[in-house]
């Protein structure tokens, strides 16, 4: 028997227990962080996979986003005769908002999905059970390096994205549209504040990194041990990860004003 009220109740319970599950999983990961031995080699491998291999995607996307911002910002600002402040518009919107958020979404799609698929496939082929049988904790050996790598990599990728985007905006604004290069850089430098904007940007990217690392490993770790389970884990990582990033972005901005 299903009626709308019990449907709602079941969904609420399911949501609460999913939140509880991921919180327990997260605290498990954090506990394993302080447990010897440190998995440095595996973390470096994960940084290579998640960070370095995302570099080209992040740099080109950043350049394209900056170019579009430069073009759109210019056509809007030129109506008010304020095209001199294009640098401030491009720089502030990138540093405060677009840089961390777009990098977060791109990394979710590029790296988060691959983490979920990899761990999901390990679940499906009983590799995690094999590790447990050799009394190796799979969270410590498989999950932790990837989660830590994601947390470390996100602020770096976000900063690279922003620098490439500022360059993209410069190319469009100065080289194509004929704005004064000095005015672009000067308005950027005058409007960006280190403590308010840069620290907030890095902090945001760092929190997004933790979110992506936690969600992607959790989805992979708890996936059903079959092919459909792996594909569901990948899909739900991208969906849940993206939505969580966008919502938490609102709350970080509202609470800390960055």
């Amino acid at each position: 028997m299903s009626n709308p009220v019990s449907d709602l109740g079941r969904q609420t319970l399911g949501f609460v227990s999913a939140l509880g599950n991921i919180t327990r999983f997260g605290s498990d990961v954090v506990r394993n962080l302080f447990r010897p031995p440190p998995r440095i080699a595996r973390t470096i491998e994960a940084i290579y996979d998640l960070g370095f291999l995302s570099l080209v995607l992040i740099a080109t996307s950043g350049f394209a986003v900056g170019a579009v911002l430069g073009l759109q910002g210019y056509t809007t600002l030129v109506r008010f005769g304020a095209e001199q402040s294009l640098g401030a518009v491009v720089g502030l919107s990138l540093i405060r908002e677009l840089g961390p958020v777009l990098t977060g979404l791109l990394v979710t799609g590029r790296a988060g999905s691959s983490v979920a698929a990899e761990i999901g496939a390990m679940v499906a082929t009983e590799q995690l059970d094999g590790l447990r049988m050799m009394s190796v904790n799979p969270i410590h050996f498989v999950v932790l390096p990837k989660a830590v790598a994601m947390t470390l990599v996100m602020p770096l990728l976000s900063a690279i994205f922003i620098v490439c985007a500022i360059y993209g905006g410069y190319i469009v604004g100065v080289e194509l549209l004929g704005l004064d290069g000095g005015a672009y850089i000067a308005s950027l430098e005058d409007s960006v504040d280190f403590r308010e904007d840069i620290v907030g940007s890095v902090l945001k990217a760092w929190i997004f990194g933790m979110i992506i690392g936690l969600i992607s490993t959790h989805r992979g770790y708890t996936s059903a041990p079959n092919a459909a389970g792996v594909s569901r884990a990948t899909t739900s990582t991208v969906v849940i990860g993206s939505v969580t990033i966008l919502f938490s972005d609102y709350f970080i901005t509202a609470l800390w004003g960055v």
């Binding site: 960070g51 570099l55 720089g91 540093i95 990599v153 602020p155 770096l156 990728l157 900063a159 690279i160 922003i162 620098v163 500022i166 950027l188 430098e189 960006v192 504040d193 280190f194 904007d197 840069i198 940007s201 890095v202």
Partner: peptide, 16 residues
């Protein structure tokens, strides 16, 4: 490269 990007943003544009 990543730390360099952060340093560029902090020192050059952030005016530290």
């Amino acid at each position: 490269i990543g730390l360099g990007a952060i340093a560029y943003l902090s020192l050059q544009t952030g005016g530290v």
